[in-house]
Design a protein around this nucleic acid. Structure first.
Lengths: 155, 155
DNA sequence: GCAAACTGGTTACAATTGCAAGGATACCCG
DNA sequence: CGGGTATCCTTGCAATTGTAACCAGTTTGC
């Protein structure tokens, strides 16, 4: 009876597969931002969020794009130094400020966003529309479940 | 025509979703290893690979679990210091050595592997078996496609 | 009205990671 | 053989990241 092997196969282990897939995709896509504009992934997320919503506080960006606040803070500092975003004080609450893309920042966004979309498109190029819908739904449910499990474990 | 907004919605952008999902799952699962045994994710991957295959070189582990060789090297050093793995020289090639779990290491593996499997199981608990099969296939194809795209971009 | 608690954001510090170089060994080919 | 090159692994260093402490400003509750 002993012998045991193998209680777990890494290649088919979902958490492992998700990690490898996400990293592969992320690395591949990051090359696009980096090569053309020297923009890192956190910076790109900031630009993408601002491009989508226009004006958001650092807190809002962190919440929406799920980045740690120090990551947001540092990415924002870099982007501001490169004049791709600008800050405007919130007269209602002087602790925070609103971030928004500058002209230059928006120009980069307008260039990169379609490329990012094309990339995502290329990923599912071989999928039928029902397969895409299935993928969508499955990822959605996995995400919900993962959050439930995280909460359960925290208790 | 101008106006533009929003060329890209982050919430439905596949690379982004994959990253968030993978990280959520990974963090949640990492808590299990860490709380009980103070084992990090790279260390866990090493243990899991050795648990599955018995005896592997550092190179083999890196290749199989897709970890950078320095990550493997350092995880191995830590695990060896904790006497969870042991090295045996390869008399055929003195540059490398074979790694294997010690008794203690295997004991941890035997405890953690079922928990990891349960966790993965819990993630897809609400899925029918055909949904699981669909997820499997979709992830597989995404992975292949992602690698193709990575190669194309490298050219 | 004001001290205590809280919040948004930044920064110092420590841990983690990747890259590049190096050390030892193995292979290749004239 | 033996010098050049490639491979396995480790290590020094620099970049990235997270944790915790902190500052400035806001809210709460007496």
């Amino acid at each position: 009876m002993t012998s045991s092997l193998p209680p777990l196969e890494l290649e088919s282990f979902l958490p492992y597969r998700l990690n490898v897939l996400a990293e592969t995709v992320s690395q591949s896509l990051a090359g696009v931002y980096r090569r053309r504009y020297g923009i890192t992934v956190p910076e790109w997320r900031l630009i993408a969020t601002l491009g989508q919503f226009g004006t958001v506080t650092a807190k809002g960006i962190g919440h929406h794009s799920r980045m740690h606040k120090t990551k947001v803070s540092r990415a924002a500092a870099t982007l501001e130094a490169r004049a791709l975003i600008r800050r405007e004080p919130n007269s209602q609450d002087m602790r925070e400020s609103f971030l928004a893309l500058t002209e230059d920042g928006r120009a980069i966004y307008e260039t990169l966003a379609p490329q990012a979309r094309d990339f995502a498109q290329a990923l599912v190029a071989g999928f039928s529309s029902s397969e895409r819908a299935a993928l969508d739904g499955l990822l959605e449910r996995l995400m919900l479940r993962a959050q439930e499990l995280t909460n359960e474990m925290a208790e």
